[in-house]
Design a protein around this nucleic acid. Sequence first.
RNA 1: GCGAGCGUAGCUCAGCUGGCUAGAGCACCAGGUUGUGGUCCUGGGGGUCACGGGUUCGAAUCCCGUCGCUCGCCCCA
Length: 418
Amino acid sequence: MSRLRPVRGTHDLFGETLRRHRLVAETGRRLAVRYAFEEIETPIFEFTEVFSRTLGETSDVVTKEMYTFEDRGGDSITLRPENTASIVRAVISGGLFQDLPVKFFYCGPMFRYERPQKGRLRQFHQIGIEIIGAPEPEADVETIALGRHLLEELGVADRVELQINSLGNVASRAAYREALVAYLRRHEDRLSPDSRLRLERNPLRILDSKDPGDRELLAEAPLFSDYLDRESRHFFARVCAGLDLLDIPYRVEPKLVRGLDYYTHTTFEFVTQELGAQGAVIAGGRYDGLVKQMGGPDIAGIGWAGGVERLAMLLPAAPAAVRPTAVIPVGDEAEREAWLLAMELRRQGFVVDIAYHGRPSQRMKRADRRNCRFALSLGEIELARRVVRLRDLDTGEERVVSRDALAAMLRELGAAEA
RNA sequence: GCGAGCGUAGCUCAGCUGGCUAGAGCACCAGGUUGUGGUCCUGGGGGUCACGGGUUCGAAUCCCGUCGCUCGCCCCA
C-alpha cells in the first residue's frame, strides 16, 4: 500500500458517496436554472495572481493553502482554491459585463493544501452562484433565497441556521476596523497569542475567535452595527426586509466576519451543528470592489459557495442505485437471442445487464447480487413462442410475456430507465 | 504548522499479560443444482500482521523511529 494510494486529502468517489454528491450538484444545478442562472465552467487552474491579489495577501488561503507550481513556461500557476476569483476573471477577460447583471452557477473541484478532517479535504467540491453587476439588495435576497431553497430541496433546511451580518461599505468597514483595533490594543495583554497575530494581519477575524479569554474581551468590544453609515445601514435593512418578505428565517450575527478580504456589505453562512468544526455548508457575501480591483469596471457582485461533501454528509439518506433488468439466456441456442433482446430493450431506454457466462442459476444469483429488480429469461420454449419469462426478483413472482408486449409491461412495472 | 487516537484478508474485527504453518463473520470464486436468485452445505483464492530498526531462544503482541488514516486546533465550503 506504499505508493498506490490517493494523495492525502483526496478520495476516489463512487457508489453511495458519489450518488450523494451527484444529488447535491444536480439539485443545485436544477434550482439555479429555475432562478435563471446560467452555468459556467472555468479552468481548474489560473495564474497565481488571480487568487493572491483578490483573496487578500494575508489570508490563510493565500499564505498557506494554495497548490501553486511553476509550469514549463515559467509561469506561476495555482489550482483554484475557490471559484469566485476565476469567474470574475472570466467576466473581465471575456467582456461579459456588456449585459448586466450576469448570473452564473458553477460546480466542480477546488483545491486547498490543508490537514484533512471531517468535512475538509485537499480536493473538495463546491457548487455556487454569482450575480455580477447588481448593486441592489434584491440580488442579495435572491442569492440567499436560492441557498435556502437548495437546503429545503435536499431535506436539510431544518438542521441548518442562516446567520447574516453586514460589513458595510468600504468606508464603514475601515472606520470599524480602526475602532476595533484601538480597543484591542488597549487590552493586548489579555489577547490569546493567535489573536495577537491577527491584530496585525486581519483584526476583524478576532471577532471569530473561540478562545474563552478573547470572547470575554469581545463582549465589551465596539459593535460593527454602530459603525455602519447611513447607506450601509439602509442597504442591510433592505436585505433583511427582503428575507422577511420571502419568509426566510435568519439570525443577525454581528461577529460573523468571514476570511476573504473582498467581502463588503452582506455576509452570510448557513451553519449546521452536525459536522463538528466545519459547520458552514453554504457561505458567501457581497464583493462590490472586487471586479474593479481585478482590473474590470466598477461593478458589484454577490454570491455563495456550498460544500458538496458537507451537504452530502447531511443528506438524510443516500439516493438509491439504479436497479437493472437482467437478461438470462437458458441454453446455448438462446444466447444470441438474449443479446438481441438486451440491445433492443436498451434502445428503448431500459437499464439492462447481461452476464457473459454461467448457467441460468448462476446468472440469476448474479442478477440478485447486482441488485437487479427484474430478470428476463428465455430458452428454447420461449424462443419458439416468441415470449420471455419476466421474474420480479423482489417477490419471486414470474409471468410469461410476449415479446411484443414486453416493453409496455416493463414500463408498467416500473423497470429502471435511463 | 500544532495536538490526540488508531494501523491484522476487499469490509468489520478477534488474537488476553510474547509461544506451533495468523483466525472469524461478511464479501469474492467454484461445486452441490448444464431451465431460475435470496436459505443451506462443501471446497477455494486471497495477509510483507503499515514500514524500518531494537529487545528476546522466540514479536501481530513489548520499545523506538518513520509513513499512513481519522479526529480536533488554526482556517475554511
